[in-house]
Each structure stands twice: as C-alpha cells, then as structure tokens.
Amino acid sequence: MVKRNHRSAYLLILPYLLFLGVFLIYPILFSVWLTFHDWNIVSTDIPFVGLENYKRLMEDELFFTSLWNTVRFILINIPLQIVLALLLAVALNQPIKGRGFFRGAYFLPVVTSGVVISFLWAWMLSTDGGIINEVLGRIGIPPVPWLTSETWAIPSLAWVAAWKNLGYYVVIFLAGLQGIPKNLYEAARMDGASPVQNFFRITLPMLNPAMLLVVILSTINGFQLFTEPFIMTGGGPANSSLSVVMYIYKNAFQSLDMGYAATIGLVLALIILTVSLLQKRFLERDTYY
C-alpha cells in the first residue's frame, strides 16, 4: 500500500493532545517551577527561593516519618497480598465448580470505593464494639487498638488495602498460572517430582512476570496511600500512620504552602519511578525451559 500522510489524523488527535498539554504537560512544568518558589496561592508576590524547599525537605523530620510510614505500609502490604492472592489463584486454577462465582466474589472489593472500605473496616476494627475485637473478646483476647496505637495503625491499614486489592492480584496470578504449559508438569511427574517441588521449581519461576507486575503495581499503589489513613486514622496516633500523600495534602491545604507541597509531590514521583525501575531491573528473570 502507498504510504500516505493523513492530515485528518492530526485533527483527530488534537482534542486529546490539548487535554494532555493543559492538564498534564503544563502541570508537570508548573510543578517543577513551584518547587523553586514560595507561594501561599493568594499572594501576588511569589518570591524565588532557589533550593530552599529541597533543603527544608531534607531536614524535615515529619516528611521522613511519613515516608517511613509509607514504606512500612508497603513492606507489610506486598507479602500479605502475594501470599494470599497466590493461594486463592492456585485454588481457583484447579478443575472446580463455581470458579466464576469465587473470582467474582474476590473481585468485589476492587470495584468498591476506598471510602466505603475504609469506613467499613474502621468500624469492624474499632475498639468500641467492632466485630473483630468482640470476637477476640469471646475467646478471651483483650481488645486490640488496631487503629489507635502506634504499633498497629500501619499494619491494620496494610491489611485493609490488601483486602481491597487482593481480587485484582488473584486475576493477574490466575492469568499467569493458565499460561504455564501443561507439559512442564507432565515431564516433572515422569521424574517423580512432588507437588511441593512442582510449586517451587515450576509454578513460581514461571509466574515471575505476573509476580513482577504485582510487586510494581502494589508499590505504586502503596506510595499513593491516602484514603485509608485519611478516613481510618487521620494519620495518627502521633503521626504514626501519616502517609506522604496526606502530608502533601496537609502542606497544601492546611498550611497553604504550595511550593513545599509541590516539592514533596515531585520527590514522591521520582521515588515511585526509581523504585519501580529498580524492581523491574532486579526482579525480572528470564524463564526459559
């Protein structure tokens, strides 16, 4: 076919590109510009402050607290998610009845608003009348302050987020499992391999791409943590569950410190990009058999 240059193509893309320019490219540049300025959004005087915002960030203990909280959240959330999602996906991958129902049930929290799920679990985990503590009480365990203690706040949030997203990762793992050639298992059976050996020698290595996807997606998700702590703990107690995004929100909308909030946003974006690239670099394995 003759190569043609369709001018109408540009017209078709133009509306999208306009949106992209105004609401994505320009805000990125604007964001970088903001990090070098001090602005409360109201004042007409916007002094250039050089690297002041970055310097302040490096000395800001509360920022590092929020970063550490977020990292702790991710470190608990990811293994929890992988183990449970893998367990359910392996069970779903058997010749069983009602696969559609089970998959559908696991997926329900994925489509439900984080707002719904945060309030729901805030109530279930509550120390005054929450079902979890009530049930624990029946078997003689004193109430655990799931959301109101510095020890438990982050693990509780990590559990709730895992519960919300689990169905999503089950679907990803299931797709990965169904992509593993059956003849690998047949060959292993001939060699007399046990099911446990099968799982660790064949299933897990062959699932590497799915695993990588799950790790990267939940890391990105984890760094964006906002709704759950905003609703369930308010970042407390004593900032022990303050996430980075909540801290951005506080700086921008409680202290009206736009330059500093933009600086944290930019640093967070760079952290997310770097971590996901590193994960891709170090977790990716070639699986040839």
Partner: peptide, 24 residues
C-alpha cells in the same frame, strides 16, 4: 513517537499533578 509519549504519560503519578491542577 506520539504513541510512545502518550504511553509514557501513564507513568506520571497523580501526586505530581495535584498541586498544579488545583492551582489551575
């Protein structure tokens, strides 16, 4: 090139955009 750029924009986290978008 355009398609690659559009795909790249998917990597931008909302947290980078939220302050400037709010100001806009």
């Amino acid at each position: 090139v355009l398609f690659s750029v559009i795909l790249l924009t998917m990597m931008i986290p909302f947290q980078l955009l939220m302050i400037p978008l709010y100001i806009i």
